[in-house]
Design a protein around this nucleic acid. Structure first.
Lengths: 211, 211, 211, 211
DNA sequence: TATGAATGAGTCTTCATTCAT
DNA sequence: AATGAATGAAGACTCATTCAT
């Protein structure tokens, strides 16, 4: 009963304040180490108010994840040239993902939650499935054109998504010191080559031509 | 300071019982969700005994991770043919890693711990660095022979390790339904192709020739 | 950090309930033997609420000690006639202390805490120093007037305070069966005589004249 | 059943080792803060052996207290000149007590245990009663001779014992910086004067004659 | 809407004591 | 006598969640 969740202008602002505060704290200290009271303090509201906007801590997390994922998908979609061939589009999506993740590091903090918490894991999985099926569709198209070897498209999807996420993660943790644009191109290369066995033209101009 | 110091054989057995129980529970429910009392109950000992063998929950975790990592490294080392060319060796290591991870799923549970705690994070990082430098060395050798394009070896190392871990993770989570041997080969292909742009001969005989 | 900060009047009442309950229990069973849960039960609140008002058990103790000490000092100050000669004032202070302690037996329970913990010890010492310097000042004045023999004023201060506390303690423990008013006068005599070698006029009328 | 407490030579040595270790640790950290395992470690024996010699931690404490008290009584007895007048003998006993306590500081650590623990308090009280009755007897004799004013002898006994213990305690805690011999004389003065209202000849030669 | 207060199950950890050998 | 291992009852403290106002 405690959460009628009204939607006046002001109400939405308040909710957003909580989301923002949570995003920042999750990024800084992780989900588990962030207390609801911390979030409220950071948002400048009383602890009790939290439950007016969110039924549980987990639900705020889920909302945060969903929001970011939508942005990510938009970024991916915007990067993929409509008519282009499938592999190029996969590459474009991967590059855009890397860039997005570098700019929205919070996204990672979210992904870093303990993956063994079933409920949280479900929230996380929920979205990657969407992207996964995108990639799978493109892989299938590429296979039809002979660009990618036969094999379970799911396998290739995992490879692409895993690469994006591994490289981004390493970059975030400081294990990969290079400009994000360079990283994006290299990841594009890596993915393309892994998929097709051939180097491909990068999506955007390389600062220094490979020549 | 409970003065652990194992004295008898029996003491070591007990310690192992606790480690085993913990490994199982960490795998099933995750590190955070596993209580010390659960571990003791599973091992069939009183709660207080835990502290005879380990000063903290964290220390048991660290010991578990180190042990598994040693096994993983042994598996990798055993798989890499001494005289073989660098890329082949990388591939061999990757395949062995995939196999190892499939057999020792608990390893993942450990890696899935939320990286919030600095101490745990250090334990976790500690080992991946070892493997990373291995791979980097091999990449450098491969670059010297012209098999791998120039570029930061760290980048390639991240790519290899990320692939191993992404594919293994997906397999564990049931998103990749195929025999582990097939998966290992495919990962080998993926990595090789990503590194060199060329398909390579698999390490072990393929069950069904790609024909 | 549970963010105590009392806001409402009601909050202060609750805090006082906890202080009262703790005072009683500390008196009855001692600091070490009193559990936080006991205090909460006695105050009729849930265990968790304790930490809303006090960060630790120790901090409640410190607050209790400081409060009582302020009362004691007030009692002492009120008893000392402003213009009177130093020895008389010391005597007056001692008598007032004895009376205060008899009425506020809890004060003893607090002082009986084992002086092991540095933090607690500091809290305890903190206040006796104030009174000690009071007495020392008066002793110095008395020495200037030739009423008290020369010698380290600190010595006399210890003597006075020790007497007050020893007699009070014995009274509390039932080893001294007499009305508190009589005890106060006797302690006044004892202290005066020890300081000056002469009997003095008591501060207040003696019930039965010594005649 | 676990404590037949045999008494071979060796057995007694072992027991003494434990007592010595405990005495030292109680002095350093207090009773409550000393663990049985600490005592055993300090004595160089296994924890289990403790219970061969003592049924409980408390019983060791009691034994320690009793032993020290016997020494104290011996020191007091030795200091009191057999034929001397009562007040002199009280003074002699007080001086000897102060000296003893300075040399055997552990005694204090024992007295510092939380006085609200009934069992420990009983152990402590047990002995002071003996001394108290000694002093009371002497006070009565002094009253008979007109040296001490009429009044409850118990009151005076408390005064004497309290003085000894307060001054000794202050000295131990560093609040009274003076040679122990000087302190003993001053305490003798203090007590004598408090009892009789007259200064008395000190028991031992004063370094600097009072002039 | 908003707040401060209240709840209580859950967690790690300590330590005197006991036991098997 | 002696040891190392084992026990388990406590106890302090955390924190998501609920409630009265």
């Amino acid at each position: 009963m405690p959460t009628p969740r009204l939607h006046t202008e002001h109400g939405n602002e308040r909710k957003q304040q909580l989301l923002d505060a949570a995003e920042r704290l999750f990024t800084e200290r992780g989900y588990g180490a962030t207390r609801i009271s911390d979030i409220c303090a950071a948002a400048g509201v009383a602890k009790g108010l939290f439950y007016w906007y969110f039924p549980t801590k987990e639900s705020l997390f889920a909302e945060l994840v969903r929001t970011m994922r939508q942005s990510l998908r938009r970024a991916q979609a915007a990067a993929m040239t409509p008519g282009a061939d499938p592999v190029t589009r996969i590459r474009q999506g991967a590059e855009a993902s890397v860039r997005f993740m570098a700019e929205h590091q919070p996204y990672f903090a979210l992904l870093d939650v303990e993956r063994t918490d079933d409920a949280l894991d479900a929230v996380l999985k929920e979205g990657s499935d969407v992207y996964a099926s995108d990639v799978q569709r493109l892989v299938r198209a590429a296979q039809a054109e002979g660009q990618v070897a036969d094999g379970d498209p799911a396998f290739y999807a995992v490879g692409v998504m895993g690469a994006v996420s591994s490289f981004s993660h390493a970059h975030r943790k400081g294990r990969l010191r290079m400009p994000i644009d360079e990283l994006a191109l290299l990841v594009g290369d890596w993915v393309t080559q892994a998929l097709t066995g051939r180097a491909s033209e990068p999506t955007t101009a390389r600062s220094a031509p490979p020549g």
